[in-house]
C-alpha cells in the first residue's frame, strides 16, 4: 500500500551505494518547476485557508470555533476518531498478524477486502454501509442517523491503515529472535509482549496517526449514513461545507484551519516515527 513509513525504514537498511548528488542545471530547473506547480496546487491554496481564517483576527476565529454547533461537531469528530483509532490499533494489528502468520484458503480475497475501503469512493462507502446497517438491513440493525453511524463509517474508511503499516514490519521480523526468546524460557505471550510488540510499536503508531487523520477528515461516507444531524451526527467537515454553501468563507476557513492543524500534527508525528524506525536498524 501507499504507506512508506515501514518501507522507508527497510530501504534504509538495504540501501546500496549512491549518495544523493548536488543539483545540476537540469535538475535544478526541474525542481524549480515542480516547486512552482506544487505551490500553485497545494501550498498556496492551503495558505489561503489559514490566511482567510486569520483575517478576522483571533476573536472572530475563536468565536467561530466555539459556536455551539461547530464545537459539538468538533468534539464528536475528535472523540469518534480517537475511539476508532483505538479499535484500529487492536484490530489492525490482529488482522496483520493473521495475514502474516496464518495461512488459509482465500487469503488473497482478504487482502482485497482490506484495500477496498481505500479504493472505494467515500459516497459509495456510505451507500455500502447503509445497505447492511440502514433501514433495509437484513440484519435488522438500523444505525442510520445515529452517532454509531459515524463510528461505523470511520471504521470502514480507516480499516487499511494500521494493517498496512504493521504488515511489512511483521513480515520482516526474523524468526530466530522469537526462538531465542523461547530458548531463554519466555512463553509465547511473554515473547509477544517483550520482543515482538516493541518492534511493532513504531509501525502501529504510524498507522494510528494516519487512521486518526483520515477519520477526522472524513466526509463522503457520512452524507447518506449519518444524516448530518446537528449536535448528533454532524462532523467537522460538514460544518465547513455548510459555511461554504452559505458563502461564509471566513467561518469555513476557521474550522478548516482546525482540521489542518490536526493534519499537521499527524505529519509531524509520522516524521518522528520514521526517524526512530530507521535508527533502530
Amino acid at each position: 500500500m501507499v504507506l512508506a513509513v515501514a518501507s522507508e525504514g527497510r530501504a534504509g537498511r538495504t540501501k546500496r551505494l549512491g549518495r544523493p548528488g548536488h543539483l545540476t542545471k537540469v535538475s535544478g530547473l526541474g525542481l524549480g518547476v515542480s516547486l512552482i506547480w506544487f505551490s500553485l496546487l497545494v501550498l498556496i491554496p492551503l495558505a489561503a485557508v489559514v490566511t482567510t481564517a486569520a483575517e478576522g483576527g483571533w476573536d472572530a476565529f475563536w468565536h467561530t470555533i466555539t459556536n455551539e454547533q461547530t464545537f459539538a461537531a468538533i468534539k464528536l469528530t475528535v472523540s469518534q476518531a480517537f475511539l476508532v483509532t483505538g479499535v484500529n490499533i487492536v484490530m489492525g494489528t490482529l488482522i496483520a498478524w493473521v495475514l502474516v502468520r496464518d495461512s488459509f484458503f482465500g487469503k488473497r480475497v482478504v487482502e482485497v477486502l482490506i484495500d477496498l475501503p481505500f479504493a472505494l469512493p467515500t459516497i459509495v462507502a456510505g451507500l455500502v454501509l447503509l445497505s447492511l446497517y440502514g433501514p433495509k438491513s437484513p440484519l435488522g440493525i438500523d444505525i442510520a442517523n445515529k452517532p454509531s453511524a459515524v463510528t461505523v463509517a470511520f471504521l470502514f474508511v480507516t480499516l487499511p491503515f494500521v494493517v498496512r503499516t504493521v504488515q511489512p514490519v511483521l513480515e520482516e521480523l526474523e524468526g530466530d529472535v522469537e526462538e531465542a526468546a523461547a530458548s531463554l524460557g519466555a512463553s509465547r505471550f511473554t515473547t509477544f509482549r517483550r520482543i515482538i510488540l516493541p518492534s511493532l510499536i513504531p509501525a502501529i503508531a504510524a498507522g494510528a496517526a494516519l487512521s486518526f487523520a483520515r477519520a477526522v477528515s472524513e466526509y463522503g461516507s457520512l452524507v447518506l449514513l449519518s444524516g448530518n444531524l446537528p449536535f448528533k451526527t454532524e462532523v467537522t467537515s460538514v460544518r465547513v461545507l455548510s459555511s461554504v454553501e452559505n458563502n461564509n468563507t471566513e467561518a469555513a476557513a476557521a474550522v478548516a484551519t482546525v482540521l489542518l492543524v490536526i493534519s499537521l500534527a499527524v505529519i509531524v508525528i509520522l516524521d518522528i516515527v520514521q526517524r526512530r524506525m530507521s535508527r533502530r536498524g
Binding site: 530466530d176 529472535v177 531465542a180 520482543i195 518492534s199
Partner: peptide
C-alpha cells in the same frame, strides 16, 4: 544463532 538473533530494541 548464526545471525545473533539480538533483541534489537
Amino acid at each position: 544463532f548464526q545471525h545473533y538473533a539480538a533483541f534489537k530494541h
